[in-house]
Design a protein around this nucleic acid. Sequence first.
DNA 1: TGGTTATTTGGTTATATTACCAAATAACAT
DNA 2: ATGTTATTTGGTAATATAACCAAATAACCA
Lengths: 106, 106
Amino acid sequence: MKETNMALSGAKAKILKALAHQTRIYMVEELAKDEKCVCEFVEAIGSDFSTISKHLSVLKNAGIVQVDKRGQKVFYSLKATCMTNFLDCIENIIKSNLEEQSSMFK
Amino acid sequence: MKETNMALSGAKAKILKALAHQTRIYMVEELAKDEKCVCEFVEAIGSDFSTISKHLSVLKNAGIVQVDKRGQKVFYSLKATCMTNFLDCIENIIKSNLEEQSSMFK
DNA sequence: TGGTTATTTGGTTATATTACCAAATAACAT
DNA sequence: ATGTTATTTGGTAATATAACCAAATAACCA
């Protein structure tokens, strides 16, 4: 069933797009260590509060992170922990790409 | 070193963006089974030849696939095989999201 | 050489994403 | 109630992506 496979690829693309941004990848990697509130990301990343909040909501809507409101603060934590392995895979691609590029100068 | 981490996240984002499209995910999954020429994808996906070719070149530039020209045909094959595990991770997220949604009706 | 097939590249237009500002909401403290 | 802090939401402008068409390349065949 070709069309079914395509539809599944589309569903996967939605989740991948949610991750495919410098800021959101950084967030996922930080959240892999420990939960964080929005304000901590604002401080660490230095973008507008609204920008950070929107990035987190993209991750939340994709089902990658989850939310816990405590007092005035909103804490985000990593829900899809397999993401970590995946980012290692990406890191290997980067290394392999760099090796190829540097081998051009030998 | 916060800025170094951010730069690394940016490099990862480039590769993720290369994968984050319905058609390109489908391509990677097909290539995980076997190499394919551009024309086979054109037939299977049904988009314009130029569209398919551009998608494959995005994957190639990211270092996810590799190229082998033989005769008139250009064959693409999967280079970053760890992609497959990753797409399984995404599939688990989809399942978990669906379970949560359906539990709302119980 | 000229024709055919396979693929890539350039151009254009439509659509999607992102960032910031301003305003709204929510919880807590005074 | 009022003020303060933390966060989300709506609007807008800039930028990035995607799809198609047409034209350019490249390899092979007659």
